[in-house]
Protein backbone atom coordinates (compact mmCIF):
# COMPACT_ATOMS: atom_id res chain seq x y z
CA UNK A 1 0.00 0.00 0.00
CA UNK A 2 1.00 3.62 -0.54
CA UNK A 3 2.48 5.46 2.42
CA UNK A 4 -0.40 7.94 2.30
CA UNK A 5 -2.93 5.10 2.67
CA UNK A 6 -0.97 3.69 5.61
CA UNK A 7 -0.96 7.08 7.30
CA UNK A 8 -4.69 7.46 6.71
CA UNK A 9 -5.24 4.05 8.31
CA UNK A 10 -3.14 5.09 11.33
CA UNK A 11 -5.18 8.27 11.70
CA UNK A 12 -8.45 6.38 11.39
CA UNK A 13 -7.51 3.84 14.07
CA UNK A 14 -6.21 6.56 16.37
CA UNK A 15 -9.53 8.42 16.05
CA UNK A 16 -11.47 5.23 16.81
CA UNK A 17 -9.20 4.57 19.79
CA UNK A 18 -9.89 8.07 21.17
CA UNK A 19 -13.60 7.59 20.56
CA UNK A 20 -13.99 4.26 22.34
CA UNK A 21 -11.38 4.25 25.08
CA UNK A 22 -12.15 6.82 27.77
CA UNK A 23 -8.78 6.79 29.57
CA UNK A 24 -5.94 7.41 27.13
CA UNK A 25 -2.29 6.89 27.90
CA UNK A 26 -1.71 10.66 27.68
CA UNK A 27 -4.36 11.27 30.34
CA UNK A 28 -3.20 8.37 32.52
CA UNK A 29 0.43 9.53 32.45
CA UNK A 30 -0.70 13.07 33.32
CA UNK A 31 -2.59 11.71 36.35
CA UNK A 32 0.33 9.48 37.39
CA UNK A 33 2.81 12.32 37.16
CA UNK A 34 0.56 14.74 39.03
CA UNK A 35 0.07 17.09 36.08
CA UNK A 36 -3.71 17.27 36.25
CA UNK A 37 -3.87 20.10 38.75
CA UNK A 38 -6.44 19.60 41.45
CA UNK A 39 -7.71 16.11 40.53
CA UNK A 40 -5.22 13.75 42.15
CA UNK A 41 -6.49 10.17 42.32
CA UNK A 42 -7.71 8.66 45.57
CA UNK A 43 -5.02 6.24 46.82
CA UNK A 44 -5.94 2.76 48.01
CA UNK A 45 -3.07 1.31 50.02
CA UNK A 46 -4.79 -0.70 52.77
CA UNK A 47 -8.15 -2.19 53.75
CA UNK A 48 -9.36 1.05 55.32
CA UNK A 49 -8.69 3.10 52.19
CA UNK A 50 -10.23 0.30 50.08
CA UNK A 51 -13.49 0.63 52.04
CA UNK A 52 -13.37 4.42 51.57
CA UNK A 53 -12.56 4.04 47.88
CA UNK A 54 -15.36 1.60 47.11
CA UNK A 55 -17.80 4.40 46.41
CA UNK A 56 -15.49 5.55 43.57
CA UNK A 57 -15.15 2.02 42.26
CA UNK A 58 -18.90 1.49 42.09
CA UNK A 59 -19.97 4.89 40.88
CA UNK A 60 -19.51 4.34 37.13
CA UNK A 61 -20.73 0.81 36.72
CA UNK A 62 -23.28 -0.23 34.14
CA UNK A 63 -26.99 -0.26 35.06
CA UNK A 64 -27.85 -2.79 37.70
CA UNK A 65 -28.21 -6.25 36.29
CA UNK A 66 -28.57 -9.64 37.87
CA UNK A 67 -24.81 -9.97 38.19
CA UNK A 68 -24.40 -6.74 40.05
CA UNK A 69 -27.29 -7.50 42.33
CA UNK A 70 -25.38 -10.63 43.24
CA UNK A 71 -22.30 -8.49 43.71
CA UNK A 72 -23.96 -6.06 46.04
CA UNK A 73 -25.49 -8.95 47.95
CA UNK A 74 -22.02 -10.08 48.91
CA UNK A 75 -21.48 -9.21 52.53
CA UNK A 76 -18.27 -8.35 54.27
CA UNK A 77 -18.15 -11.92 55.54
CA UNK A 78 -17.50 -13.09 51.99
CA UNK A 79 -14.31 -11.13 51.92
CA UNK A 80 -13.21 -7.84 50.58
CA UNK A 81 -11.18 -9.59 47.87
CA UNK A 82 -14.24 -11.16 46.28
CA UNK A 83 -16.17 -7.89 46.40
CA UNK A 84 -13.30 -6.05 44.76
CA UNK A 85 -12.92 -8.85 42.22
CA UNK A 86 -16.57 -8.41 41.24
CA UNK A 87 -16.08 -4.68 40.71
CA UNK A 88 -13.13 -5.50 38.47
CA UNK A 89 -15.28 -7.89 36.48
CA UNK A 90 -17.92 -5.22 35.83
CA UNK A 91 -15.27 -2.83 34.55
CA UNK A 92 -13.72 -5.61 32.44
CA UNK A 93 -17.07 -6.40 30.83
CA UNK A 94 -17.50 -2.74 29.96
CA UNK A 95 -13.95 -2.71 28.57
CA UNK A 96 -14.79 -5.71 26.38
CA UNK A 97 -17.62 -3.65 24.89
CA UNK A 98 -15.19 -0.79 24.18
CA UNK A 99 -12.70 -3.17 22.54
CA UNK A 100 -15.51 -4.67 20.43
CA UNK A 101 -16.47 -1.25 19.15
CA UNK A 102 -12.82 -0.50 18.40
CA UNK A 103 -12.49 -3.83 16.53
CA UNK A 104 -15.56 -2.98 14.44
CA UNK A 105 -13.88 0.26 13.41
CA UNK A 106 -10.89 -1.59 11.88
CA UNK A 107 -11.46 -1.36 8.11
CA UNK A 108 -12.62 -4.75 6.82
CA UNK A 109 -13.29 -6.30 10.23
CA UNK A 110 -17.08 -6.30 9.99
CA UNK A 111 -16.87 -7.86 6.51
CA UNK A 112 -15.17 -10.96 7.94
CA UNK A 113 -17.20 -14.10 8.62
CA UNK A 114 -19.23 -13.39 11.78
CA UNK A 115 -17.95 -16.58 13.42
CA UNK A 116 -14.40 -15.39 12.79
CA UNK A 117 -15.19 -11.96 14.28
CA UNK A 118 -16.36 -13.79 17.42
CA UNK A 119 -13.19 -15.93 17.48
CA UNK A 120 -10.89 -12.93 17.00
CA UNK A 121 -12.53 -11.12 19.89
CA UNK A 122 -12.70 -14.18 22.12
CA UNK A 123 -8.96 -14.75 21.80
CA UNK A 124 -7.83 -11.15 21.39
CA UNK A 125 -9.79 -9.21 23.93
CA UNK A 126 -7.91 -10.21 27.11
CA UNK A 127 -4.59 -9.55 25.35
CA UNK A 128 -5.87 -6.11 24.40
CA UNK A 129 -7.08 -5.41 27.94
CA UNK A 130 -3.70 -6.36 29.38
CA UNK A 131 -1.88 -4.11 26.91
CA UNK A 132 -4.26 -1.31 27.82
CA UNK A 133 -3.45 -1.75 31.51
CA UNK A 134 0.21 -0.90 30.89
CA UNK A 135 -0.27 2.88 30.50
CA UNK A 136 -2.23 2.89 33.76
CA UNK A 137 0.60 1.27 35.68
CA UNK A 138 3.95 2.23 37.07
CA UNK A 139 6.25 0.21 39.30
CA UNK A 140 4.33 1.31 42.41
CA UNK A 141 0.72 0.72 41.44
CA UNK A 142 -2.08 1.15 38.96
CA UNK A 143 -4.86 3.55 38.14
CA UNK A 144 -8.32 2.00 38.27
CA UNK A 145 -11.88 3.23 37.99
CA UNK A 146 -11.22 5.48 34.98
CA UNK A 147 -8.21 7.06 36.67
CA UNK A 148 -10.08 8.14 39.78
CA UNK A 149 -8.15 5.73 42.00
CA UNK A 150 -4.52 4.69 42.34
CA UNK A 151 -4.16 1.25 43.92
CA UNK A 152 -0.73 0.37 45.20
CA UNK A 153 1.12 -2.72 44.04
CA UNK A 154 1.99 -3.56 47.66
CA UNK A 155 -1.69 -3.53 48.61
CA UNK A 156 -2.56 -5.88 45.74
CA UNK A 157 0.28 -8.16 46.86
CA UNK A 158 -1.12 -8.16 50.39
CA UNK A 159 -4.49 -9.67 49.39
CA UNK A 160 -5.10 -13.29 50.24
CA UNK A 161 -4.14 -16.05 47.82
CA UNK A 162 -4.81 -16.42 44.91
CA UNK A 163 -5.99 -12.79 44.53
CA UNK A 164 -2.50 -11.52 45.40
CA UNK A 165 -1.12 -13.45 42.42
CA UNK A 166 -3.41 -11.88 39.84
CA UNK A 167 -1.82 -8.51 39.20
CA UNK A 168 1.88 -9.06 39.84
CA UNK A 169 2.59 -10.64 36.38
CA UNK A 170 0.78 -7.68 34.75
CA UNK A 171 2.97 -5.22 36.67
CA UNK A 172 6.12 -7.04 35.61
CA UNK A 173 5.00 -7.03 31.98
CA UNK A 174 3.77 -3.43 32.04
CA UNK A 175 6.90 -1.94 33.57
CA UNK A 176 8.94 -3.52 30.75
CA UNK A 177 6.35 -2.65 28.09
CA UNK A 178 6.28 0.99 29.20
CA UNK A 179 10.01 1.34 28.48
CA UNK A 180 9.07 1.16 24.76
CA UNK A 181 7.36 4.54 25.30
CA UNK A 182 4.53 4.03 22.84
CA UNK A 183 1.97 6.81 22.61
CA UNK A 184 -1.76 6.49 22.04
CA UNK A 185 -1.47 6.63 18.25
CA UNK A 186 1.06 3.75 18.30
CA UNK A 187 -1.12 1.81 20.73
CA UNK A 188 -4.15 2.06 18.42
CA UNK A 189 -2.27 0.28 15.62
CA UNK A 190 -0.74 -2.31 17.94
CA UNK A 191 -4.16 -3.20 19.37
CA UNK A 192 -5.53 -3.67 15.84
CA UNK A 193 -2.59 -5.97 15.02
CA UNK A 194 -3.36 -8.10 18.09
CA UNK A 195 -7.04 -8.36 17.21
CA UNK A 196 -6.26 -9.38 13.62
CA UNK A 197 -4.24 -12.48 14.57
CA UNK A 198 -4.74 -15.13 11.91
CA UNK A 199 -3.54 -18.00 14.11
CA UNK A 200 -6.45 -18.05 16.59
CA UNK A 201 -7.88 -21.55 17.04
CA UNK A 202 -10.99 -22.36 15.02
CA UNK A 203 -10.84 -19.55 12.45
CA UNK A 204 -12.75 -20.48 9.30
CA UNK A 205 -11.21 -18.11 6.80
CA UNK A 206 -7.68 -17.08 7.75
CA UNK A 207 -6.58 -15.39 4.52
CA UNK A 208 -8.64 -12.19 4.67
CA UNK A 209 -7.65 -11.76 8.34
CA UNK A 210 -3.96 -12.09 7.49
CA UNK A 211 -4.37 -9.63 4.64
CA UNK A 212 -5.96 -7.08 6.96
CA UNK A 213 -3.27 -7.65 9.59
CA UNK A 214 -0.50 -7.23 7.04
CA UNK A 215 -1.79 -3.80 6.06
CA UNK A 216 -2.05 -2.72 9.70
CA UNK A 217 1.45 -4.09 10.33
CA UNK A 218 2.82 -1.98 7.46
CA UNK A 219 1.03 1.02 8.91
CA UNK A 220 2.46 0.29 12.40
CA UNK A 221 5.99 -0.10 11.04
CA UNK A 222 5.76 3.23 9.23
CA UNK A 223 4.18 4.89 12.27
CA UNK A 224 7.00 3.76 14.55
CA UNK A 225 9.67 4.91 12.10
CA UNK A 226 8.09 8.36 11.91
CA UNK A 227 7.07 8.69 15.56
CA UNK A 228 10.20 7.11 17.12
CA UNK A 229 13.02 7.73 14.63
CA UNK A 230 15.70 7.14 17.27
CA UNK A 231 14.27 3.96 18.74
CA UNK A 232 16.09 1.15 17.01
CA UNK A 233 14.22 -2.09 16.29
CA UNK A 234 11.11 -0.80 18.05
CA UNK A 235 8.82 -2.59 15.58
CA UNK A 236 10.57 -5.93 16.20
CA UNK A 237 10.62 -5.41 19.97
CA UNK A 238 6.91 -4.68 19.95
CA UNK A 239 6.07 -7.79 17.97
CA UNK A 240 8.06 -9.87 20.46
CA UNK A 241 5.77 -8.62 23.21
CA UNK A 242 2.92 -10.54 21.60
CA UNK A 243 4.55 -13.82 22.67
CA UNK A 244 4.84 -12.71 26.33
CA UNK A 245 1.26 -11.53 26.16
CA UNK A 246 -0.10 -14.94 25.22
CA UNK A 247 1.61 -16.52 28.22
CA UNK A 248 0.18 -13.88 30.56
CA UNK A 249 -3.32 -14.49 29.21
CA UNK A 250 -2.96 -18.27 29.55
CA UNK A 251 -1.82 -17.88 33.18
CA UNK A 252 -4.61 -15.38 33.87
CA UNK A 253 -7.31 -17.69 32.52
CA UNK A 254 -5.91 -20.61 34.56
CA UNK A 255 -6.02 -18.44 37.68
CA UNK A 256 -9.66 -17.51 37.03
CA UNK A 257 -10.48 -21.18 36.51
CA UNK A 258 -8.79 -21.96 39.82
CA UNK A 259 -10.81 -19.22 41.50
CA UNK A 260 -14.02 -20.68 40.10
CA UNK A 261 -13.16 -24.01 41.71
CA UNK A 262 -11.95 -22.74 45.07
CA UNK A 263 -14.15 -19.74 45.82
CA UNK A 264 -17.64 -20.82 46.76
CA UNK A 265 -19.15 -17.37 46.34
CA UNK A 266 -17.45 -16.53 43.12
CA UNK A 267 -19.69 -15.79 40.17
CA UNK A 268 -18.09 -14.94 36.89
CA UNK A 269 -19.67 -12.24 34.73
CA UNK A 270 -21.61 -13.93 31.87
CA UNK A 271 -19.64 -12.10 29.18
CA UNK A 272 -16.29 -13.00 30.73
CA UNK A 273 -17.54 -16.56 31.20
CA UNK A 274 -18.32 -16.74 27.48
CA UNK A 275 -14.87 -15.48 26.58
CA UNK A 276 -12.94 -17.72 28.97
CA UNK A 277 -14.87 -20.92 28.34
CA UNK A 278 -12.67 -23.35 26.37
CA UNK A 279 -10.18 -20.55 25.77
CA UNK A 280 -6.89 -22.17 26.77
Amino acid sequence: PEAADLRALARHLYEAYLKYFPLTKAKARAILSGKTGDSAPFVIHDMKSLMEGEQFINCRQMPIQEHQQQTSALTAAHGVELRFFHSCQSRSAEAVREVTEFAKSIPGFVDLDLNDQVTLLKYGVIEVLIIMMAPLMNKDGTLISYGQIFMTREFLKSLRKPFCQMMEPKFEFSVKFNTLELDDSDMALFLAVIILSGDRPGLLNVKPIEQLQETVLHSLELQLKLNHPDSLQLFAKLLQKMTDLRQIVTDHVHLIQLLKKTEVDMCLHPLLQEIMKDLY
Binding site: M62, T100, L114, V118, P270
Partner: peptide
Protein backbone atom coordinates in the same frame (compact mmCIF):
# COMPACT_ATOMS: atom_id res chain seq x y z
CA UNK B 1 -19.75 -20.63 17.75
CA UNK B 2 -22.24 -17.77 17.63
CA UNK B 3 -24.61 -19.80 19.81
CA UNK B 4 -21.95 -20.30 22.49
CA UNK B 5 -21.06 -16.60 22.47
CA UNK B 6 -24.39 -14.85 22.51
CA UNK B 7 -23.26 -11.68 24.28
CA UNK B 8 -20.16 -11.26 22.10
CA UNK B 9 -22.32 -11.87 19.08
CA UNK B 10 -24.80 -9.29 20.29
CA UNK B 11 -22.01 -6.76 20.87
CA UNK B 12 -20.76 -7.35 17.34
CA UNK B 13 -24.17 -7.02 15.75
CA UNK B 14 -25.46 -4.04 17.68
CA UNK B 15 -24.72 -0.42 17.02
CA UNK B 16 -22.35 1.58 19.19
CA UNK B 17 -24.98 2.20 21.88
CA UNK B 18 -24.20 0.53 25.21
CA UNK B 19 -25.52 -2.99 25.48
CA UNK B 20 -26.89 -4.39 28.70
CA UNK B 21 -23.99 -6.29 30.10
Amino acid sequence: LKEKHKILHQLLQNSTSPVDL
